[in-house]
Simulated assay, not measured.
Amino acid sequence: MAEPLPQCYLNGDYVALSDARISPLDRGFLFGDSVYEVLPVFAGRMFLFREHFDRLARSLREIRVENPHTHQEWRAILEQLIVRNGGGDMYVYLQVTRGAEFGRNHAFPVPAVKPTVFVMASPLPVLTEEQRAAGFAAITVQDFRWGRCDIKSTALLANVLMKQQAADAGAYEALIVRDGEVLEGSSTSVFIVANGVLVTPPNSHRILPGTTRDATLSLATNVMPVEIRSISLDELRAADEVWISAATRDVLPVTSVDAAPIGSGKPGPAWLRLREAFARLRQQLADTPVYEP
């Protein structure tokens, strides 16, 4: 992974990332009492801004933290950070914690403390044409996460361990299974193509609502039938195609699961059509003004 870009935003100030400091008593550090968002930027233009910040607002409501900014204020903060880091292609990571109190108490601070707001930018991951042409390997893992995966919490230890399990197996992603159903990846949404139909699991407390997932479904409706329903592990293994999606990587083809090939063992025709649709969508974005009124 490339190093993060030099400028960040912390609690109202733009500072060098190397100089940014927070208190060790911050509840994000002590408890993982915080939420986050990641959104891609193409040619200096934010992708699906409102969808990402609607999701941030929902996560904050669910953990009972007051949103420190309006959508308009968030947009201004990110636009300035993008400019300060040179524009172009990147992704922005932002985190809001409940804040810092003098001590360590499980219950919320009384009175409430000021949330900590941190935003940084990084280059988008680079995937070669050879990688995309070959597709990506995945493994399946049993779910041992907490019960509110719909909140985009920074408490990601289970996901970290799952991702490392995939890396140890020489795979790109770990697909999470609970009670025989495939839910999502450790850092991605999951889809299968079966008999010409694109299928993805429904949103629930066990799944993070995916903004790129929703964009994929919107684009796919022009390509093939779409179903939102549960996916069994057997269906995953028998699928014609398997895809994963994430904000920083669009939609990627999975060509093997647990060392067994998916379909032909190569990226399938449906994924190729979706890839072209995403490319057109990015080009449309590039042709719009950097800052909309």
Rank of each mutant, 00 (worst) to 15 (best):
G147H: 05
D54R: 09
N203W: 06
A138H: 07
N222V: 00
N203Q: 10
A137G: 15
R213N: 02
L25N: 14
D240I: 00
I228C: 03
F29D: 09
S218M: 11
G147D: 08
R58N: 09
E3D: 12
T248Q: 08
H52V: 02
P201G: 07
D19I: 02
C8I: 01
R213F: 03
W243A: 01
P68R: 06
P109Q: 12
Q164K: 15
M120N: 05
F53Q: 12
A107F: 15
N85L: 01
D240T: 01
D150P: 05
M224F: 07
Q284V: 09
E62M: 13
A259T: 14
A215Y: 04
E66V: 12
L272S: 12
R21K: 15
Y14G: 02
M90V: 08
G87M: 08
R64E: 13
N195S: 13
A137M: 08
S153N: 10
M90P: 13
N159K: 07
S153T: 15
R58Q: 12
L198N: 08
H69Y: 15
K163L: 09
H205R: 14
G12P: 01
L252V: 07
V126D: 03
V113P: 00
T200V: 05
Q165G: 10
D179L: 04
L252G: 07
I77W: 04
R237Q: 13
T154P: 08
P261F: 07
V38T: 14
L60N: 04
D13Y: 06
R213A: 02
V197H: 00
E241S: 02
P40C: 08
A57Y: 07
A166G: 10
E79A: 04
V193F: 10
R45W: 08
V15N: 00
